[in-house]
């Protein structure tokens, strides 16, 4: 009889401990469906490197007085960036690493190599804070096909979402921030002076 009681007590302790532990950590796999940007395509054949750092990006953070968060953004990165650049350029080719291209090759005009540089978030603690907030910053690097860096362009996005369900709100805020990044890249790409010059050169070469 005492064996049965102690086993039951042990089961209760395990259940309570696992409930407490699951309450202390949050794991989010960012789910997103990004729309195609409504922008005019640039007449450029572009290579795109999505490396493992970007595709497997995981943000881990322990917030004081809260929980530990594991946020997996890799798949959302790929979804957002491929859709975005496919809409922006007449031709896009994906690579895992820098492509070895013959100097006179006309297959691609340049190579884009985006990196996720910073990710920050804030989850409300008090009842008066109503929004989950997310800041995200990418660095978009453009290379010539010979590997020479043309420019590095930092692009930031901010997103917030109403705190109704913590995980859903965090997911929504991340998606809003990533959409902001996509909006900036797709609408301001041709406003960057170095990119303007580079596009001008490509245009001149095409016309020759």
């Amino acid at each position: 009889m005492s064996d049965v009681n102690s086993r039951r007590q042990l089961q209760i302790i395990i259940v309570v401990a696992s409930m407490l532990l699951s309450g202390c950590s949050t794991s989010i796999w960012v789910e997103a469906d990004f729309p195609q940007p409504l922008v005019n395509q640039l007449p450029v054949s572009m290579g795109l490197i999505l490396d493992d750092d970007l595709l497997d990006y995981v943000h881990y953070e322990e917030l004081p007085r809260q929980a530990s968060y594991t946020i997996q953004i890799g798949e959302a990165n790929e979804l957002m960036l491929v859709q975005l650049f496919e809409s922006m350029f007449t031709d896009l080719t994906e690579y895992n690493e820098f492509p070895l291209i013959e100097p006179d090759s006309v297959e691609i005009d340049g190579v884009l190599w985006p990196e996720l540089e910073r990710f920050e978030f804030d989850v409300p603690v008090g009842q008066r804070d109503e929004f989950v907030e997310v800041w995200i910053q990418y660095i978009v690097k453009l290379y010539e096909t010979d590997g020479q860096l043309v420019t590095e362009w930092p692009v930031s996005g901010y997103g917030k979402a109403e705190m109704i369900d913590r995980d859903d709100a965090l997911n929504s805020a991340i998606v809003v921030a990533m959409r902001e990044v996509g909006a900036t890249i797709s609408t301001k790409f041709t406003d960057q002076p170095e990119l303007q010059d580079w596009l001008q050169e490509r245009g001149n070469e095409a016309s020759l």
Binding site: P35, Q36, P37, L38, V39, N40, V176, R179, E180, G182, A183, T184, S186, T187
Partner: peptide, 28 residues
């Protein structure tokens, strides 16, 4: 979504003048 990215928080027209400018884009 269909008008992405033109009605995102940072891009959406705030005045009707900005709206007029936005609608000069043929695809929009």
């Amino acid at each position: 979504d269909e008008l992405y990215p033109w009605f995102e928080p940072s891009m959406a027209p705030v005045t009707t003048v900005e709206l007029s400018e936005l609608l000069t884009r043929e695809n929009v």
